[in-house]
Design a binder for these strands. Structure first.
Length: 682
RNA sequence: GCGCCCGUAGCUCAGCUGGAUAGAGCAGCGGACUUCUAAUCCGCAGGUCGCAGGUUCGAAUCCUGCCGGGCGCGCCA
C-alpha cells in the first residue's frame, strides 16, 4: 500500500476532469504531499495555488472544484479547504484500519508493493585498494552502496553490485619491491596477510620518507618563504585611500596569515614524519640503503603492467591473501557483492579503448599524452600517459563499456567520495560522447568522515584509522554498555554469550546507522558516544524499540504463535468498521484504531513504502533512517499509552498485538535494508 | 585564479523535486519507574535558517552579489 501514490492517482483523475493537460499533471501531482503538521490532516494537496495562476481563477474556487471532482470518499474524510487554497485530507479511520490489517498479514513485504517499472542498476561501491588495509574512508562507500543495493532490490529492481577493486596499482609495486628485499619467508608461509601488510607498510613508509624529505618539505618551505615575503610587502604598502580597498587589503593580510600558520603546522607534521624514520636506527639504515625506492617501486609496477613473468606471478600469488583480508571485513559487515571485477580485469582492454577514442576523434595527443578534451573543462581527461601507461580514467571508460555490453543497465551508480566529482563529471561527459547516452550515470557523492576536531578522522599519530580496529572499538564499547545496563537490572536478561552477540550487532549497527542517517553529501563528525546513544536517531534506539516490541510477545507466550499463524494466513475479510456495529463482531485478526496513538502508528506503518520511494528518488538512505525514527517514536507513544496484554477486550488485545507485530517487522525490514541486524533482547 | 559542495538552536544534525507557526538528539531546567525493557517517556526554554537584494499567492529551499568554510583543478586513484 502506498497512500501517497493512491492519492496522487485520484487527484490525477480530478485534474483531468478539470481540463488540465496531461503533460502538466505529474508536476502538479508532486504537490500532493504528506502534511507537515497533524492539524492539517494526514496529507495535503497544494495544486490549487499554481493552477489559479494558469487558469486565471481564484485558487480557492479551483480548490472547491477539485474537492467536488476528487473521488476519494472511500479513503478520506470530507476534504477541507484552508488558507489560500490548501486542500487538507484526513484519512478515514475505517479505511486506515483496513489497510493496516492487510499490511499486517503480508509476511514477505510488510505491505510494500514492488515497483511497476523495474530498472536495471549497476552499483559500484566500496572499491578499496587491496594490499592496503581498509580504513575509515571505506565505510561510507561500502555502507551507503550496500543500503542502496538492498533497497533497490527490495523495491523490485534488478540490481548488480560490482566491487571495482584497486588491484593493479602502485600498492602492488610496493609489495613486490618489499617481497624482493625484505620478505620474512617463514612469516609469509605462516601468516601471509600479516606479512604482506607489513611489507606494504614498510615500503610505503620508506617511499613517503624520501618524498617528504626531498620534495614535500622543500616545497612547503618555499611556499612559506614566498608567503612571508608577500605578507611583508603587503604590510609595508601604503594603506589604500578608499575604505573598500583598505578592507580588501586587510582581508588579504588576514587570509595570508591564516594560510601561513596552516603551512607551518603542515611543515611540523612533515618534519615529524621524517624524524620518526631518522630517530629509528634500523629504519634510518634502510632509508639510506633504498634511496631511490620511489622510482624502483614504479619500475616494479611498470614491469607488472608490462607482463613481466616474475612480477605477474608474484601478483597472482599475493592477490588471494589480500582478498582474504578484505573479505574478513565484508563478512563482519554483512556485505557481499555480485561481482568483484577489479582494475586488473580491464587491463587488456585499455589499449583498445584509447584506440577507439582516437579513431572516433574524441582523443588526441597533447604534450606526449593522449587526452580527451571536453567542452566546459579547463583540463582534459588523460587516458594515456607520456610513458604509455594507462590511467584510472581509461579503466573507468573500459568498465563502462564492459558493463553496458554485459548487463545493459538503465543506471550505473558510483558511490564514491565527493572529492572525485570532477573526475566523474568528465568521465560521464566522455562516456556520452563515446556513445553511451541512454544510461543514467550517477556519482553518488558523499562527504568526509571527521573527528571531534572537525578535521578528517585520524589517529593521534596522524595515520588513518583502520576499519577493523574501528569496528572492534565500537563493539567493545557496545559490550560495556550492554553489560552495564543488563547487570543493573533486578534480573539480568542476558548470558555472557548473549551479551557478546548483542554487542556485535549493536556496535556494527551503530557505525552503519550513524553513517546512513547523515545526509550523504555533507561531511559528518564521527563519535562513538553519539552513535551508541540510546536516545535519538540511532541504530541502538531502533534496536531497543524492536526488542521492546518483541518482549511483549515473549510475555504473551503462546499468543505469539497463534499470531504468527494468523499473520501467515491470507488477508482476512474485513467485515466490520473498527468501531464495530453490534451485528458485525470484529474478527479476531482485524486491527482496531481506538486511540489517537494507534491511529498515528497505523499511518506511520503504512508510510514505509513512501519512505523507500524518497530514498530512491535521489539515492539518500537518510530518508529511511528518518522514517524509522519517526516510526519508533510513534510506537513509543503507543507503548506508553496503550496497554497491549492488559487491553480491555480480547479484540483490542489481538488488534494491538497485530500492530506490535507489524511494527517489529517493519523496523526489522527497514534496518535490514540498511544492512543492520536486530536482536530479540538487549 | 577557475570549478564543485556547504553555512539552520550553545553542540551534532534533519528539513522529503517552493507550502501554513523551521524540527530532532545532546547539553540546561522541571516532571514520570509496586504497571508489557526507565538503555525509556512527557513538559519548559532555546532561531534574524551567514548577509543583502530578486523571482511569487508563498523561500531555509530557486536566481544574483557579498561574507565565511571545505574540497578539487594534465599525466596518482
Amino acid at each position: 500500500m502506498n497512500i501517497l501514490a493512491t492519492l496522487r492517482n485520484r487527484f490525477g483523475r480530478a485534474l483531468g476532469a478539470l481540463g488540465v493537460a496531461e503533460s502538466e499533471t505529474p508536476e502538479l501531482l508532486a504537490m500532493v504531499l504528506p502534511s507537515q503538521d497533524a492539524k492539517f490532516g494526514d496529507y495535503q494537496a497544494n495544486v490549487a495555488m499554481p493552477l489559479g495562476k494558469r487558469l486565471g481563477q481564484p485558487p480557492r474556487e479551483i480548490a472547491a472544484e477539485l474537492v467536488r471532482l476528487a473521488d476519494v470518499a472511500d479513503l478520506c474524510e470530507p476534504l477541507e479547504i484552508a488558507g489560500p487554497g490548501f486542500i487538507n485530507l484526513r484519512l478515514r479511520d475505517d479505511w486506515l484500519a483496513q489497510q493496516v490489517t492487510v499490511a499486517s498479514v503480508d509476511v514477505e513485504r510488510v505491505g510494500v508493493a514492488q515497483t511497476a517499472t523495474p530498472r536495471t542498476f549497476v552499483l559500484d561501491y566500496s572499491s578499496p585498494n587491496v594490499a592496503k588495509p581498509m580504513h575509515v574512508g571505506h565505510i561510507r562507500s561500502t555502507v551507503i552502496g550496500d543500503a542502496l543495493y538492498r533497497i533497490l532490490r527490495f523495491l523490485g529492481h534488478r540490481t548488480i553490485s560490482d566491487n571495482h577493486l584497486g588491484d593493479w596499482g602502485t600498492q602492488f609495486g610496493m609489495i613486490i619491491y618489499g617481497y624482493k628485499h625484505f620478505v620474512d619467508r617463514p612469516a609469509l608461509a605462516r601468516k601471509p596477510v600479516d606479512e604482506l601488510t607489513r611489507l606494504y607498510k614498510l615500503v610505503n613508509t620508506l617511499v613517503e620518507y624520501h618524498e617528504t624529505a626531498n620534495e614535500k618539505i622543500p616545497a612547503v618551505e618555499k611556499r612559506i618563504a614566498d608567503g612571508e615575503q608577500l605578507l611583508a610587502k603587503l604590510r609595508d604598502a601604503a594603506m589604500p585611500a578608499d575604505a573598500k580597498a583598505a578592507k580588501q587589503a586587510a582581508k588579504r593580510v588576514r587570509q595570508l596569515d591564516g594560510q601561513l600558520s596552516e603551512l607551518r603546522s603542515d611543515l611540523d607534521e612533515l618534519l615529524g614524519e621524517v624524524a620518526a624514520v631518522e630517530d629509528d636506527p634500523p629504519m634510518r639504515q634502510l632509508a639510506v640503503e633504498h634511496a631511490d625506492i620511489g622510482q624502483r617501486v614504479l619500475l616494479e609496477t611498470a614491469l607488472l603492467h608490462g607482463g613481466d613473468p616474475t612480477n605477474v606471478e608474484l601478483w597472482r600469488q599475493f592477490l588471494p591473501a589480500c582478498l582474504l583480508e578484505i573479505e574478513t571485513v565484508y563478512k563482519r559487515l554483512g556485505v557481499s557483492f555480485d561481482h568483484t571485477l577489479g582494475e586488473s580485469f580491464y587491463q587488456d582492454r585499455l589499449r583498445g579503448v584509447v584506440k577507439d577514442l582516437a579513431d572516433k576523434g574524441l582523443a588526441r595527443e597533447s604534450d606526449g599524452a593522449i587526452c580527451v578534451f571536453l567542452d566546459g573543462y579547463d583540463v582534459p581527461m588523460i587516458v594515456q600517459k607520456q610513458d604509455g601507461a594507462f590511467l584510472y580514467a581509461t579503466t573507468d571508460l573500459a568498465t563502462i563499456q564492459y558493463r553496458m555490453r554485459e548487463w545493459h543497465p538503465d543506471a550505473i551508480l558510483y558511490v564514491v567520495d565527493h572529492r572525485q566529482s570532477l573526475h566523474f563529471d568528465q568521465l560521464f561527459t566522455a562516456a556520452r560522447l563515446w556513445g553511451y547516452r541512454d544510461v543514467e550515470l550517477q556519482h553518488i557523492a558523499f562527504g568526509t568522515v571527521l573527528g571531534d576536531d572537525g578535521k578528517p578522522f585520524k589517529t593521534r599519530s596522524g595515520t588513518s584509522v583502520g576499519l577493523a580496529g574501528l569496528l572492534d572499538e565500537a563493539v567493545e564499547r557496545a559490550y560495556a554498555i550492554v553489560s552495564q545496563n543488563d547487570a543493573a537490572r533486578p534480573e539480568p536478561l542476558l548470558s555472557e554469550e548473549d551479551r557478546r552477540h548483542v554487542a556485535e550487532r549493536i556496535g556494527i549497527g551503530a557505525i552503519k546507522y550513524a553513517d546512513l542517517a547523515h545526509n550523504r553529501t555533507s561531511d559528518y563528525v564521527f563519535s562513538y558516544d553519539k552513535m551508541l546513544a540510546m536516545t535519538g536517531n540511532t541504530a541502538t534506539y531502533m534496536q531497543y524499540s524492536y526488542a521492546r516490541v518483541r518482549s511483549i510477545f515473549a510475555k504473551a507466550g503462546a499468543d505469539a504463535h497463534s499470531l504468527e499463524r494468523a499473520g501467515a494466513s491470507p488477508p482476512p475479510r474485513v467485515t466490520s468498521a473498527p468501531h464495530g456495529g453490534e451485528d458485525a463482531p470484529a474478527r479476531s485478526n482485524a486491527i482496531l484504531l481506538s486511540t489517537p496513538q494507534e491511529r498515528a502508528l497505523a499511518v506511520a506503518l503504512l508510510q514505509f513504502s513512501e519512505a523507500l520511494d524518497r530514498v530512491v528518488a535521489d539515492y539518500r538512505p537518510n530518508h529511511l533512517t528518518g522514517y524509522l525514527f519517526e516510526l519508533a517514536t510513534r510506537y513509543s507513544d503507543f507503548f506508553e499509552n496503550c496497554p497491549v496484554l492488559r487491553a480491555e477486550s480480547d479484540e483490542l488485545r489481538m488488534s494491538r498485538l497485530l500492530l506490535c507485530d507489524l511494527t517489529a517487522r517493519t523496523l526489522q525490514q527497514g534496518l535490514n535494508l540498511l544492512g543492520i541486524e536486530v536482536v530479540e533482547r538487549m
